[in-house]
Each structure stands twice: as C-alpha cells, then as structure tokens.
Design a protein around this nucleic acid. Sequence first.
DNA 1: TTGTACGCGTTATCAT
DNA 2: ATGATAACGCGTACAA
Lengths: 334, 334
Amino acid sequence: MTIYDISQKAGVSIATVSRVLNGNTNVSEKTRKKVLDVIEKYDYAPNVFARGLGLDSMNCVGILCADSSDIYLAKAVYYIEQGLRAYGYNSLLSCTGYDLENRKKSLSMMLNQRVDCVILVGSSYLEQDDSNNAYIREASVKMPVMLLNADFDCENVYCVLCDDFKSTMDATLWLMEHKRKKILYLYNSTSYSAIRKLSGFRSAILMKEQTLDKNYELYFPGSRDDIDGVRDLLLETRKKGLEFDAVVCADDSLASGVIKYAKAAKLSIPKDLSVIGYNNSILTITCEPELSSVDNHLQDQCEQLVKSCVQILRGEETPRKIIFSGELIERSTT
Amino acid sequence: MTIYDISQKAGVSIATVSRVLNGNTNVSEKTRKKVLDVIEKYDYAPNVFARGLGLDSMNCVGILCADSSDIYLAKAVYYIEQGLRAYGYNSLLSCTGYDLENRKKSLSMMLNQRVDCVILVGSSYLEQDDSNNAYIREASVKMPVMLLNADFDCENVYCVLCDDFKSTMDATLWLMEHKRKKILYLYNSTSYSAIRKLSGFRSAILMKEQTLDKNYELYFPGSRDDIDGVRDLLLETRKKGLEFDAVVCADDSLASGVIKYAKAAKLSIPKDLSVIGYNNSILTITCEPELSSVDNHLQDQCEQLVKSCVQILRGEETPRKIIFSGELIERSTT
DNA sequence: TTGTACGCGTTATCAT
DNA sequence: ATGATAACGCGTACAA
C-alpha cells in the first residue's frame, strides 16, 4: 500500500494525500475526510524509507550506552526511551562497552544511520585525555550530541549532569560532622564523573586535614557485580594496617561489597563503620542494613535531557549545560 | 557525499561503485581498488534510506520489552543487542510497559518502521486470554516474530524459553526433601511465565499432598521495587495465622522482601525459613544472607534467540521452539 | 484548493 | 567488465 494506491482509491492526487498526511491546511474539509477514510480503511502508513530519503531524517534518536544491563544505565536508557517516545521519536540503541574504539565505531554507525541526534549515556564517554574526545567533537558537526552525566564544552553538544563533585564532598563532610575520623573513598572507574567524585572527596578531606593520604583512595578494578571482590579488597586493606571508620563509594554495588566486608570482619554498621553509596538504586533497599546513598535525580535528569533534545530538534534554543544537585538519602548505614 | 560523487571521482559509473560496495565479483581488481580508495578517502557510506527504499530492509531488528530498567529484562535486552550487533544488525528499542494497548501500538510502530524482525522480550507479551494474542499472529504475517520466555505456537513465530514449570517444581520439591512442610508461593505477575511457575509449584505440592491450599499461593500486586510492601504482606499473612517455613518466589526482588520479612519477624534464615528466588540476579549476592535462586540461563537463551533470528533472516531453517532448563543455585537461604 | 513533475540515493536489470 | 536507466515511495515547488 503506497501513497499512489491511496490517492487512486480516494480519487485525488498524491500531493493531496501527502498534504493530508502532513497536516497541511490547504485541503478542503471534504477532501480531507475522504482521504482519511481511505487511509483508515487500508491502515496505511507512509514508507519510512521514502520519507527519510526526502527529508533526511528518520524521527529517531540514537542512544549509546556502555552497558544497558548496568542497573544505573538501564534506568537511564529506560527513562530516555520513554521520554523520546512520548515526543514521537524512536530510539536506536547501541551498547558499546567501555572500550574507546567500540564507542567510536558505534557513534559513526549512528551517524551513518542518519539518526536525528545522538545521546551518550554515562560519563564513560568522556576521556580524561581530551584528545581522545575528538570523536565527540567530530560527531557534533553532523548532528546534535547530548551527554548525560558528563560535562563537555563544545558547540552543538548539550550536557545534563549531576554535581557529583559537590554531592561526594557533601557526603564526606556529612560523615565528618558525624564523628567519622578515617574516611575511605572507594571507586571502580576513572570516567569523568568518577574523577569528579574523587575530587569532591579530596576537597572535603582538605577542609579538615593538612594533606591527602592517598592510601585512603581505594581503586577496585574488578567487574561491576563482583561483590565478593570488593569485600576481599577491603579485608586485605585492613590487614595491611589501614584503619577506617567510614567508606564513601562511587556506586551502590561497591557499597554492597563494603557491607559484606563489615560482616566478614565482624564490624557493626553503622556503629563501627559507616557506608554511603551512590545512585540510590534498588540495591540500597535489598541489602542489610539498608544503604544510605546519594540520589542524583536520574529521572529528572533524563526528562530534562529529552526535553532539551526535542527543543534542539525543533530548532529552539536550549541551555548547553544543566546541572542537577545530588542529595544524600539517609538509611541505616550512616 | 553520494554514490554519484564517488563514481565521478573514481572515473566509473555508479553501477560499478554499487557493485564494489556490495561485493559483486564482476569488477576488475584494478577498478575495485580504485573505487575503494576513493571511498576510503572520503569516508563514504551509502545512504541508509535510499538503500532501505530499494531493498525494503534496514538491517535492523525491533526489540520490545515492557521495562528495560527491570534488572532481568535489562540483561536480556543487553545480551540481545550485543548479539545482533555482532551479526551486523542494529536494534530499535521500544519499552512498552505492561499495558496491552501500548504493546499493540509499539508493535505496529515496529512494523511501520520496516524492521527486519521483531523480538518480544519477556513473557508479559503473551496474554492468558488467547484472543488478546491476535496482535502477535497478525504481526507474524508481516515479519518473523521472536519471543523470549514465552511459548506460542504459530507460523513464523519463534520461541526461546526456560522450563519455568519444571524449575519451580524442582525448587519446591527440593525444599520438601529438605524437611520443609509448609511452603508458600509468592508471585507478582500473571504473565505466561508466571502462570507456568505457579503450575510447577502446584504440581510439586500435589505430589505430596492430597489437595491444594490456595492460601499458600500469595499474590503481591505492588510495584517491582516495593521491597517493604512484600515484607508487610508477609507480616500480615502471618498475623492472620498462616504458618510457613519456606517461600518460593517468582522473582529475586520478591525474595528480597521475604528476607526483610524474616528480619522483621525475627526469624532465622534458613533455620526457621527457607527462601528461593528466581533469575539469579545481582540481588542474590547483595542481600544478606545470600539468596538461593533459580538460574534460567538467560545469556544462553538470548544468544540462541539471536542465532535463530539471524538464521531466519538469512532464509535458513531453525526450530520454532527451544527450551532451556533451569537450575537451582544454592546459597545461604536454603 | 488541487495536480504534475522532479529530486532524494540506492539497487538491479538490461545492454554493450 | 562496465554503463545507462528504471524503480523504490515520498515531499514539495510550481503550475493551474
């Protein structure tokens, strides 16, 4: 069923059918009705390829994320897809992993697919070494690029993020104000956002101490669901003689490992050890005791991102950078 | 940059460029090299719309899932997208929610998008009332339909699933063999798969008892991350006088609620109460004690689904139904 | 208000 | 081995 079939059955030209389809007002009510009836009757929908070919747009947004099975990224992808759909846009998804080459490849695939805009979900898309971010700059020449949870100053690149620096600093300060003396920072990534969090931690420490003790910055290189690995790392750290009475984590799953550590080391939470997670995911309420965590308002961020995205596609102005603040949700580990 | 530009710069016709692009052998080595050089130099890639218009295919598979932020579905979507990408297919994602009308709408959107095939992830796409499954039958006329975790006998519909009936029956029998007398079944869905699990539970009970006591089949209507709601439901159930020493759950998050219940009721797990979850998700290792759970080999299922999908798209034969068995992973709640 | 005709960038069929 | 050209189905400028 093509526009020709419809035009024939309705006894009009294809131009008129096209006008009806696209809401052009230069059609008499009578003709419109006639055409709509035929369209309805045959359940006709325009061919997306032909339409795309002419307009060079497919009403589709590309979503790149490292790993859509990660609890946090999965939520983000979900909110974004839902939001875009509500505005009539489809979503082309590509899970790129954390490797730079694959990310580049996926991004250029999106460009070739002629998506209207591309959304990079998660700070892992921003490299510390800025020369490695050239692929984003290049993409931005061809279409708008939206970043969730990353800060990148570039024409046609729009960022929505949480102030991870301040959130982590506040969480650390909060622990200090609650009599914690030896606070450990535990992280498992060196992404843009991870670095910001680490800086926040350091700033808080420097507000009370003379110097930084790098031993209190603990990097866990394992996989995201290696909870036991985190536990073991901490047991080992403690065995080496490092004392700590609180742990600020870059992620809830890390915090979950800390809770396992406490159990293994027979420490009572929060009496002997305080723990703060990040992302306020479902893990905060399934673990025991329930985890205090920083909520970064992911849903709000995603909704704003979609809103900005739609504005850009409509040719409207929108801020290049929007920052949400985080918020410590206190539960039973603090 | 179009095929015309390339043909001009290479000093050949567009037909030759097209042949080179599509691996047609009727091109001299010399010409091929010349064309490839130009393509390389200008980083040319064919326009997907024009190609789609001619071939009526976009090398893209539609993925429908109710909620890609659900831990289990997120994993499935991830594995499927990765698999498809490895075979050169893109993925158009649509999160439809659990409402029938939205599912229908999303499916017909996929058909209009001319995806090559559509994958319905999760048993929620199959309705108990078979007349409500007509939308799947209709779609299958237009393109292959793949179902993950559902069993549907229809031409051009292919199913990959886990034997949820047997897995749940086995889990229940396992508890009986380990001296559990009063086993509760806790579920939160009436999807195809949920019904199969319930049947498995009933079968196990009937193997030992004369009759079924429906009081031991507990439905939790709340949202997926309402852990406290599950806890409260069980506290209430117990208050009503129902005794139980084991709970088989349709989902790990439900099981997580059971663990919270045990704590609230001051019951020791697994001494006073055994708990078995389903899906073997990350929740099994973040909760305390760690949760025994049925692993349904999701990754294997997804890889098989993708493999079948690709075979169908290549016009090869593939089984219409493939069933994986589940497996109880014993941890500390049994 | 309505219709005609062209352009969009491919693939594929037919000549040569 | 290579080239010319129709066909794919739509939007739209222009004509009527």
